[in-house]
């Protein structure tokens, strides 16, 4: 670690609490993009403040930063490879019928109660109406 003097931790802590208050208050405005910024934008700012100042990454040798950067890169690789197929339910030559059925079915206000229902095979529920081949939630069907 390069030479450093401890920053003013109290000031950083108070700033973090202020940012927490903003992230809680954001959704009360009811504007979607404001909520996204106050929730996720502020989360990134808060995390960066903790990592740089509390974990002292700011003063750490480069190799530690490279180690962390590689794991973030692996995450990005995972995202790039998987996310397009999960976030969309249909593509040029495939459809994910189960995911589409789940989205169409919705959760519904009584979803909690339905989870405690008996799963007696003789009882037909809305869940059972989903085609058997669609039971494997994320198994896409290729025509």
């Amino acid at each position: 670690m390069t030479e450093y003097t401890h920053p003013n931790y109290r000031k950083i802590y108070v700033t973090l609490l202020f940012l927490l208050a903003v992230s809680v208050a954001g959704p009360f405005l009811g504007i979607k993009w404001v909520t996204l910024i106050t929730a996720f934008g502020i989360a990134v700012v808060k995390a960066n403040m903790v990592i740089q100042n509390f974990m002292h990454l700011k003063w750490e040798k480069r190799i530690a930063k490279y180690v962390l950067a590689v794991s973030l890169l692996l995450m990005a690789l995972f995202w790039g490879g998987v996310a397009p197929d999960v976030m969309k339910h249909a593509g040029l030559r495939w459809t994910n019928d189960a995911a589409m059925a789940a989205t169409a079915r919705g959760i519904g206000p009584a979803h909690a109660e339905s989870s405690t229902e008996s799963h007696d095979p003789a009882v037909t529920t809305e869940h059972d109406a989903v085609p058997a081949e669609a039971a494997g939630e994320e198994a896409p069907s290729v025509p």
């Binding site: 998987v82 996310a83 999960v86 976030m87 969309k88 339910h89 995911a99 789940a102 989205t103």
Partner: peptide
């Protein structure tokens, strides 16, 4: 990614 794919 699932949350984006499942707005419900």
């Amino acid at each position: 990614m699932h949350r984006v794919g499942h707005p419900e």
